[in-house]
């Protein structure tokens, strides 16, 4: 660590996005990278052995400063994948890290507030409201099994070089960022993130369902009821409203 460099900077923080990708062609990756390029300083990507043009797509963006392609899919060992991504991101000596999935979009307000969120020394992480869009990009799902937006999801963290980073070794549903941040002060914002992973036509949803049932037939890592609800024919959907001027940190 440089002498004289404060642990928590109140200005001039670099924002680095980190992402793992796998065969994203035909999906939202290009859009995500384009949007990210507008408000982050660097993008770091681990490509989990994609066999389509995903890697080349990533390379085409100037802000993608690190891209590592893994041989042989690690999807079944999510923990190892997450760790590789974390170590790659950390190796760039970042100030703040934004963990983004290849199908997540920050609302306009959030993008505008980003710098203000990170240029302070009071808290070390930010959690957003994540919305699961369903069947398309106009509505999100809200019911018994689909309510992640009623909680906060931590995606933006300050990197502290000497901190004890712990991510439990699990095979699925590994937290995207080390659990250790939970003990540090953080900010829960009303700013929103749009998740388009489920914003797909029924056949695609069915394919996803089949994949989950193949990987986790006994519901060890997720709820079987929730898996079944993927096939609901008439899920409860709420229309997305763009907002202005909300979610400012105090």
């Amino acid at each position: 660590m440089n002498k004289g460099r404060p642990l928590r900077k109140t200005s001039g923080n670099r924002l680095t996005a980190m992402m793992q990708v796998r065969n994203e062609s035909g999906r939202y990756l290009e859009q995500v990278l384009e949007e990210l390029s507008g408000f982050v300083d660097d993008i770091v990507i681990v490509d989990d052995a994609s066999t389509d043009g995903t890697a080349r797509l990533c390379e085409s963006f100037a802000k993608v400063t690190k891209l590592v392609t893994l041989e042989g899919s690690r999807f079944n060992r999510e923990w190892g994948l997450r760790r590789t991504l974390w170590e790659l991101a950390v190796s760039t000596a970042p100030d703040w890290l934004l963990s983004v999935d290849a199908d997540e979009f920050y609302e306009e307000e959030a993008k505008r507030e980003m710098r203000r969120l990170i240029d302070q020394d009071v808290y070390d992480w930010v959690a957003f409201r994540l919305y699961d869009f369903w069947g398309g990009t106009t509505h999100y799902r809200e019911d018994e099994h689909w309510n992640i937006h009623t909680k906060h999801t931590r995606t933006l963290v300050r990197y502290l070089p000497q901190f004890y980073y712990f991510t439990p070794q699990m095979d699925h549903h590994v937290p995207r960022l080390p659990l250790s941040y939970a003990i540090l002060p953080g900010f829960l914002t009303e700013l929103r993130v749009k998740h388009y992973g489920w914003a797909q036509p029924p056949e695609a949803l069915r394919e996803k369902y089949d994949r989950y049932m193949e990987l986790d037939p006994e519901g060890k890592w997720g709820s079987l009821e929730q898996y079944a609800s993927i096939l609901d024919e008439n899920p409860r959907l709420v229309e997305w409203q763009e907002r202005r001027g909300l979610g400012r940190p105090e």
Partner: peptide, 24 residues
């Protein structure tokens, strides 16, 4: 201490910045 810290996190006992982390 590291193992205790990890277990605290796994159990979601997050009020341990001073008692556990600072102790390092």
């Amino acid at each position: 201490l590291a193992r205790s810290f990890e277990l605290m996190l796994l159990h979601d006992y997050t009020d341990c910045l001073h008692s556990h982390y600072r102790f390092f």
